[in-house]
Design a protein around this nucleic acid. Sequence first.
DNA 1: ATTTAGCACTCGGACAACGAGAGTGCTAAT
DNA 2: ATTAGCACTCTCGTTGTCCGAGTGCTAAAT
Lengths: 335, 335
Amino acid sequence: MDSRKQRVLEALIDDYIATAEPVGSRTLARKYGLGVSSATIRNEMADLEELGYLEQPHTSAGRMPSDKGYRYYVDEIMRPTRLNARDRERIRHAYHVRVRELHWFIHQTARLVSELTLYPSMVVAPPLAQALLVDLSFVPLGSGTVLMVLRTSTGMVENQTLAVPDEFDADKLWALAWDFTQEFRGVSLDELKNRILDPLQGDINRYRELWQLAFKWVTGRDGDDDKVSLAGPLNILNYPEFRDIEKVRRVLGFLETKTAVELVSRYFSDGVQVVIGAESSLDDIQDCSLVTATYRLHGSVVGHLLVLGPKRMQYNRVTSIVEAVSEELSRALHG
Amino acid sequence: MDSRKQRVLEALIDDYIATAEPVGSRTLARKYGLGVSSATIRNEMADLEELGYLEQPHTSAGRMPSDKGYRYYVDEIMRPTRLNARDRERIRHAYHVRVRELHWFIHQTARLVSELTLYPSMVVAPPLAQALLVDLSFVPLGSGTVLMVLRTSTGMVENQTLAVPDEFDADKLWALAWDFTQEFRGVSLDELKNRILDPLQGDINRYRELWQLAFKWVTGRDGDDDKVSLAGPLNILNYPEFRDIEKVRRVLGFLETKTAVELVSRYFSDGVQVVIGAESSLDDIQDCSLVTATYRLHGSVVGHLLVLGPKRMQYNRVTSIVEAVSEELSRALHG
DNA sequence: ATTTAGCACTCGGACAACGAGAGTGCTAAT
DNA sequence: ATTAGCACTCTCGTTGTCCGAGTGCTAAAT
């Protein structure tokens, strides 16, 4: 792979990304200043194909990048672009608000990323199972309902209104929450699940039912509702590779069922990762690429951020965006 | 419109609903026991077309119902079907849970309806603007954050975590919430917006900033986030009329932007309503029908429920489902 | 030893011609 | 009033043809 081959590959991928059409030698010679004739390029292309970087949909068509070609492009050729001032500003100011709710951050981030990239984007919240319980409190709302508020070490504040069997006054509830917190502070929700619910003694006994409700609620929080925020799914309809309704169904279905959560935990390591086509080994998104990044809370990786698009994705722009946003998000969560 | 025409129209619509193909006279004569020959039916069909109930995509095709035809079918011909035991059970048990969160009910309902009908479904929560403030409370979460909890007369419990300027202890917060509640109880959020924020005096003055935050939060709640729950949008991909990506984009876009909220308030009256095609005068869903219903809280209508599908919708089944669910939901909210 | 011009070849897509099939409307017979 | 029969119309799928884009190869040029 000499440097001219690289330049040919780069030009071809750039063109294919822009047009979604197989690229021929003539086009390449004309539009990109490669300084050689189309015949020479033809030879180079034949070589690149033999090496596995390009493929041909059929004999007399131009060539398009293979997964391996994209991989080489992403790893070796592509240089990160600097985002324009407008986008940088947008990212910088995205989190300047009073709201401190983790869900809000997640949601906001997904929207921001999908609007900047024009691809669908998902943000995965810190997995609750690994979070440690910080405290639990109850807020009496009257008429037999109570608001339970759970705080965890990942900064999540989850809450839910429940119907409770008896009326409780504020003091009783306060005492109960206190006891609960004392009992379980610092325990991970995952581990909590395996705790046997001690038969309660003494004073506490009267609150058994509420205690049990709380326990059940706290440990039952891993239904992945709300843990993932999806934005801009319809963006994929703008790309010609999704003209086929079956593909749309697969991809949107994939996004909707949030299989991505599981997937993303596989590309867990820090930093920006690119997954191209079949590399994900997920049938539904064989024709897609993903760009993922992690974000941090107090220095440790707690969640992921993900962009899904056609393989013909603007990798350099997307990776830049994803990197900038994940950094800004980590910074915002820290403060 | 004699009774035989009615029967022909009914058979034709039933067939068209089942097949999505224009129906010819021969098919009608063969599959439905109308007791007359295809020639007779042909004459009837010609009449029905002249009356505006049917239309022909082109000369030598069968016929399909026009909007007017569907309208007649819905209003005059169709008889409600009794749901099967399984579905009835499903609806009856849908709300047997301890969770008392309005959002949960909304979400659950949307899912239930879309799964039963196999069409996309939306549920619109009670408009906050018209709700009256019942009370506001603050829960200190430590490290400069506070959870604000708002209760309204529509049973909504909204809450949000905010970063606050100073540390507050529980007593101060309690006092502040008490004052806030005293000041504004019974005021609708809409009206509250027009209240001038009295310059605070005396003791309260110290909390000015938190007070303002709370006020801003309470009155700023009508961004329609969360007010609408959408389920099963991808169901439309199962119907052949949405083979075309442009239509899909329009309809999913319509659902995503939640224009439906505004639309639905126009069909506000109680009970189950059917809107067919152009009747909605919304370009994006010209090829769709909607079935809407209202649900009640303590006897008065507070929200809506909506199913969107192709005009070729199973009107009788959908109306039955929507009716049963909205009743069950009202019942559940009442308790 | 590379590069390039030239040329024959291949393949898909667009287009027209065509026939089959479905369905109609009309007329005449029942 | 109904129905059988028939000519007519229109769509859709198939087939054949042509065109253009693009290739690979060979031979000439640098």
